[in-house]
Design a protein around this nucleic acid. Structure first.
Lengths: 190, 190
DNA sequence: GTCTATAGTAAGATAGAC
DNA sequence: GTCTATCTTACTATAGAC
């Protein structure tokens, strides 16, 4: 089967991390889901956390691409940010990376690295766009792009948290709409 | 020792839930931390999840009180909201309730109830204040109080997520500042 | 590279004496 | 009400044959 087992393991781990998180996912679960034998896991990886780190690195890459696609879907920088913010999200599932931040495993850097790097990247990209929007006169000059970037990322991540806490998928939509409305108040007064 | 053991168990569970979350906290951990014997746990509670539900009910009550104290610390409704939003938070610890929303246990309603109810309550209280602020002419008439309430709760919850993900406690401050700046753009244009 | 067998530890809960 | 002993199952990993 060549390198197929390794790929199957990573794929299964990615799915299970999204569904149940890290702690609740056991090597057994991954093996069952992937159809791969027990020995292969420990041949290709050091163990559960090593496999999880590999899986999360892939997830982080995918999420960067998704964010980039939205942010760069339009030329206008502010429109790019708004497109990203407005994007529909499966709120009850939770963010594939953000959802893991509650787990104690996060203190082990091996698995936090891809998660942290993604959020740094996302904030950086948003701040960039916001900075350009200010320069273009589409946002008030007083806007601190790094602050606003953090706020917008937080709105989305918090939307996931509230939606899951209350079981109400619409909580995400409300959070997004509220943020969009606030943004329109900081518009244009160049 | 009377009812002391029960109290000690709940106290220990509250601490451990805050430190490690639900899944990572075992009955053994609670027993060790509380100094209570194994039998007492199962005498006073049905099991781990029952004890956790009791602990979370207390946490939720405490957090309601804390939120109320901030929101009602000033007469002016908008100032109350701003006071709540500005409050310093131990971002790297994560929210004692929001942090648990990533765990699969959340699907079992027993333990989700107090968490969900708290977030409903918090949004309701914020929406109330925001509604009054609009009526008082301190916020634009176009403001949808339920949307903005969700946004502000999300900013805080998302601030916790980003701070933990990146290991940067200042992420919370940035998110808060960005939101405060946005709010000042929706001010007063009655 | 993959398999089955197995090991050591912990989770979560029950039994029954005190 | 509290304790110790014990039970079953699962977790995570290793051993060693194929």
């Amino acid at each position: 089967m060549g390198v197929q087992s390794k790929v199957a393991l990573v794929r299964a781990m990615k799915d299970l991390l999204a569904e149940d998180g890290y702690l609740a996912t056991s090597p057994r679960d991954v093996l069952r889901r992937s159809g791969v034998g027990h020995g292969s896991l420990y041949h290709h990886f050091d163990g559960k956390d090593d496999l999880a780190a590999a899986a999360l690195a892939e997830v982080a890459t995918e999420m960067r691409s998704e964010a980039d696609a939205l942010l760069d879907s339009v030329d206008d920088p502010l429109e790019g940010v708004l497109t990203w913010l407005r994007a529909p999200r499966q709120s009850l599932m939770g963010c594939r990376l953000g959802r893991l931040t509650g787990e104690p495993i996060l203190e082990q850097s091996r698995v936090r690295d891809p998660i942290g790097a993604f959020f740094e990247y996302l904030q950086h990209r948003l701040a960039e766009k916001l900075h350009d929007a200010v320069a273009a006169g589409d946002l008030d000059r007083g806007v601190v792009s790094a602050d606003l970037a953090a706020t917008l990322v937080a709105v989305v991540q918090g939307g996931f948290v509230i939606a899951r806490a209350t079981g109400d998928p619409d909580a995400m939509n409300r959070a997004q709409r509220g943020a969009l409305a606030l943004l329109s108040g900081s518009r244009g007064g160049a």
